[in-house]
């Protein structure tokens, strides 16, 4: 069964799965890394991203290249209202944020049920084709997700390491009081970090809904995936989220293919439990 073609296909599947998981985990880890907020409403923002893409691309037929960023932008802009009314009260309050945002998640999910019903909808695919290299097959929609994940990671790395705003965010993440003493407007920095996190979550949600299916309850799985990836990589670490997402993708691909789906889920959660016992700060995180 371990033929070279099959192994190559497993690697390709792992990469495409990992790319989806990286996208889903980035927004989650950013909010925690900068503001110490555990965003239990993460899945709900992914759902909103899904509906935004459903309307802009699926219904109003905007060009795909415009519809994807616009839908994420739309959700991020509207969410600024939630930043002012809800999130701002939970910055640097990890435990309070868990409960508060769990409530927000329920409000957003069941608000979505009232507006859009519980129907599972399909967002039309942008690409239906498949690329065949030797015996290995790459669906074009998955290839696109890999490309978007790589681009987002690169842009985000550039932003965080080369821009003044990125440096301000890192400073605020390390020590709020010292950052403020150096003249950094932490409130604006937080708002920007929130905006970027929701933008990335909504973008991931749109792509997730398009690849799988869209419904108000779609966000549960991205939330679980984000949790596992971020705990694996280290809470708050952007490279950690990328590493965690990829490890999760490759592990799932390998184990599900050769040993079945049940063992794959068992191992994923088992590794997280072991990591929390022996290295609670994750693979690339830093101990508190």
């Amino acid at each position: 069964m371990f033929t070279p073609t099959l192994l190559a296909q497993v690697v390709v599947n792992g990469l495409s799965l990992g790319a989806i998981y990286v996208l889903v985990a980035l927004g989650f880890t950013l909010l925690f890394g900068i503001m110490r907020v555990v965003n239990f409403a993460h899945g709900a923002f992914a759902v909103l991203g899904g509906y935004a893409l459903y309307y802009l691309y699926g219904q109003y037929r905007l060009p795909y290249i415009l519809a994807v960023p616009l839908s994420a932008l739309l959700v991020a802009v509207i969410s600024l209202l939630l930043e002012r009314c809800v999130f701002r009260w939970f910055y640097q309050k990890m435990f309070q944020s868990m409960i508060g945002l769990l409530g927000l998640n329920m409000a957003l999910v069941f608000g979505s049920v009232i507006i859009w019903d519980t129907y599972e909808r399909a967002i039309p695919p942008a690409f239906n084709g498949m690329l065949q290299l030797g015996g290995v097959i790459l669906p074009l929609d998955r290839l696109m997700v890999v490309a978007i994940a790589a681009a987002i990671l690169a842009l985000f790395w550039l932003f965080m390491s080369r821009s003044r705003w990125g440096l301000a965010m890192r400073a605020a993440a390390q020590d709020v009081e010292i950052a403020e003493a150096q003249g950094i407007d932490t409130l604006s920095t937080y708002r920007l970090a929130f905006f970027i996190a929701i933008f990335m979550t909504a973008l991931a949600g749109g792509l997730y809904a398009q690849i799988y299916a869209l419904s108000p309850f779609m966000g549960d799985r991205p939330l679980v995936v984000a949790f596992i990836a971020v705990i694996l990589g280290g809470m708050g670490s952007i490279p950690g989220a990328a590493l965690g997402g990829l490890i999760l993708g490759f592990t799932e691909s390998f184990l599900s293919t050769f040993y079945g789906a049940t063992l794959s889920a068992f191992v994923s959660f088992g590794v997280v439990i072991l990591l929390l016992i022996f290295r609670p700060w994750g693979l690339l995180g830093t101990p508190e």
Partner: peptide, 13 residues
């Protein structure tokens, strides 16, 4: 497990 949406590895299997 019910709720799974990603079947590509299972399909490869």
């Amino acid at each position: 497990d019910r709720g799974t949406k990603e079947f590509t590895p299972l399909m490869t299997r």
